[in-house]
Lab assay of single mutants.
Amino acid sequence: DVEPGKFYKGVVTRIEKYGAFINLNEQVRGLLRPRDMISLRLENLNVGDEIIVQAIDVRPEKREIDFKYIP
């Protein structure tokens, strides 16, 4: 289970104008929005990159997770 405030290693699987989709595993995916990136820009991410993200909002009923990147 993903818990708000905890850090997780994930893989960038898709990049859109509104953010990057990060997979923690095959069943768990969330969104990293540009506003939640500190010292990292969306255009510097590539599909396949491994990054450490912090879960900031977890909505299991909608199967949605918002992430934050903190270097």
Score class of each variant (00 low, 15 high):
I51H: 00
L31V: 07
R63V: 07
L32N: 01
F67A: 02
L32I: 05
M37C: 05
G48N: 07
I56S: 07
P34G: 09
R35L: 07
K62I: 10
D66L: 11
V47I: 14
I15A: 00
I38V: 13
Y69S: 03
R35W: 08
E3I: 15
L42E: 02
E3G: 06
R59N: 09
D66R: 13
P60N: 11
N46C: 12
A55T: 07
V2G: 03
L24R: 00
N25L: 04
N46D: 11
Q54R: 07
L24A: 01
Q54N: 04
I52M: 11
V58L: 06
K9I: 12
K9T: 10
P4V: 15
G48M: 06
A20E: 01
F7D: 05
Y69G: 03
G30I: 04
D49K: 04
E50P: 12
L32Q: 01
A20I: 06
D66F: 13
P34K: 13
D66S: 10
A20V: 10
D1Y: 15
N23S: 14
A20C: 06
R59C: 04
I22P: 00
L24I: 13
V47Y: 06
V2I: 15
V2P: 07
E61S: 13
K68V: 09
V12D: 00
M37K: 02
V53F: 02
L24F: 04
N25D: 10
I51Y: 02
F67M: 04
R14S: 11
R35K: 14
P71T: 08
D66H: 08
L42T: 04
R41M: 12
P34Q: 13
A20T: 03
F21N: 02
V11E: 06
F21P: 00
P71W: 06
Q54H: 05
E3P: 04
Y18C: 05
P4A: 14
D49H: 04
V53E: 00
R63T: 08
K68I: 09
G10Y: 01
L32H: 01
K6L: 11
Y69P: 02
I70E: 11
P71I: 07
V58F: 08
P71E: 09
T13M: 09
I52E: 07
G30C: 04
K62H: 09
E43C: 09
P71F: 05
P4G: 07
Y8V: 04
L31G: 01
N46I: 12
D49R: 05
R59I: 04
K6Q: 11
V53A: 02
K68D: 02
F21V: 10
Y8N: 00
F7L: 09
I65V: 11
N25H: 09
E16P: 02
R14C: 06
D1K: 15
D1P: 15
L40A: 08
E26T: 14
Q27W: 15
R63L: 13
I52F: 10
P60M: 10
N44H: 15
I52Y: 10
Y69W: 09
R33V: 05
I70G: 07
G48L: 05
R63K: 14
F21L: 10
S39F: 12
G30R: 01
I22R: 00
N23V: 09
V2A: 05
V12L: 03
R59H: 09
P34R: 12
P60R: 11
N25K: 06
Y69M: 05
V28E: 07
V47C: 06
A55N: 01
E43P: 05
P4C: 10
D57G: 15
R41E: 12
I22S: 00
G30T: 02
V28C: 08
P60A: 13
D66I: 10
E3T: 14
Y8E: 00
F21H: 08
R59T: 05
V58G: 04
Q27S: 14
R14H: 10
P71D: 10
V58D: 02
V47K: 05
D1T: 14
V28H: 09
V47M: 07
K62P: 06
A55P: 06
T13Q: 07
I51W: 01
D57S: 15
G5C: 08
T13L: 05
G5S: 06
D66M: 08
A20W: 03
G10I: 03
I65D: 02
N46M: 14
I15R: 03
L31P: 02
V58M: 06
G48V: 01
I56Q: 07
R29F: 12
R29K: 11
D57T: 13
N46A: 15
D49E: 09
P60L: 10
E16A: 13
Y8W: 02
I51G: 00
I52Q: 06
D49S: 05
F67L: 11
G10S: 02
S39W: 10
R29E: 10
F21D: 02
A20D: 00
G48Y: 06
V12N: 00
I15N: 00
E3S: 12
V2C: 04
R63H: 14
K9M: 10
K9Q: 10
D36A: 05
N46S: 15
G19F: 05
V12E: 00
N44A: 12
Y69V: 05
Y18M: 05
A55Y: 03
S39N: 15
P60H: 10
L45E: 00
E3Y: 13
R29A: 12
N23R: 11
A55L: 06
G30N: 01
T13K: 07
L40K: 10
K62S: 12
Q54T: 08
E16L: 12
Y69H: 07
R59K: 07
I56H: 08
L40I: 13
F7K: 06
K68N: 05
D49L: 07
R29I: 13
K68T: 08
K17D: 12
K62A: 11
I38G: 15
T13A: 10
N44K: 09
Q27D: 13
V58A: 05
A55D: 01
M37F: 02
I22W: 02
V53L: 04
D36S: 06
S39L: 12
I15V: 10
E61D: 14
L32R: 01
I65K: 02
R35T: 11
E16D: 08
I65C: 04
K6P: 03
Y8H: 02
N44D: 15
N46H: 15
R35V: 10
G19M: 04
D1I: 15
V47L: 14
E16N: 09
F7V: 06
E3F: 13
K9L: 12
G19A: 07
D49C: 07
V2R: 02
N44G: 10
V11Q: 08
G48D: 05
R14V: 08
F67E: 02
E61M: 10
Q54A: 07
D49A: 08
L32P: 01
G10C: 04
I15P: 00
E64Q: 14
I52N: 05
I70R: 07
L31C: 04
L32D: 01
L31D: 01
V47S: 03
E50N: 13
E3N: 09
R41L: 13
N23E: 12
L24T: 03
N44F: 11
F21S: 03
V12I: 13
D1H: 15
R41P: 07
E3R: 11
S39Q: 14
N44E: 15
V12F: 00
E50I: 15
F21A: 03
K6D: 05
E61N: 13
P4M: 13
P71G: 11
V2H: 04
I51K: 00
K62R: 14
V11N: 05
E50T: 15
V11Y: 14
D49Y: 07
K9G: 05
L31M: 08
I51R: 00
E16S: 11
G5M: 09
R59L: 05
G5D: 07
I70P: 04
N23G: 09
L24E: 00
V12W: 02
I22K: 00
